[in-house]
């Protein structure tokens, strides 16, 4: 038949077009080739770091009050632990309090 009324049969005709199967195992070829190739670009560590920092800051902003509070508490505990190092040389709190009166005396008072 003559194809004059293509509008009518267009879809039918276009579907006659075929794509032959791939000749090779292309997926395997690509994966193998990619293993042999080193990635030339470096991962954008700076970008990742900036994104992580932004995410962290955003996470502190409301509406995440529970997280904000827990982070503040955690920071407080860390700072507290560092300031605790002042008394770490003493065996007990009593030693620390008595520190001021603790001195060597090796003679008479008078």
């Amino acid at each position: 038949m003559d194809i004059d009324d293509i509008d009518k049969d267009l879809e039918k005709i276009l579907n006659k077009r075929v794509v032959p199967k791939m000749r090779s195992n292309l997926e395997y070829k690509i994966i193998k080739e990619s293993l042999d190739q080193k990635i030339s670009n470096n991962v954008d560590f700076r970008g990742i770091a900036i994104r992580a920092l932004k995410d962290f800051i955003n996470s502190l902003v409301l509406p995440s009050p529970a997280f904000s509070l827990s982070m503040v508490l955690l920071i407080g505990l860390v700072l507290g632990a560092y300031s605790g190092s002042v008394i770490q040389d003493y065996n007990s709190l009593e030693d620390y309090i008595m520190m001021g009166s603790d001195f060597d005396y090796s003679g008479d008072f008078l």
Partner: peptide, 15 residues
């Protein structure tokens, strides 16, 4: 096949 391979390898090298 070459075109698809080139496209994917380009993507792998420069994601």
């Amino acid at each position: 096949e070459d075109i698809v391979q080139e496209a994917f390898l380009k993507l792998w090298q420069r994601p």
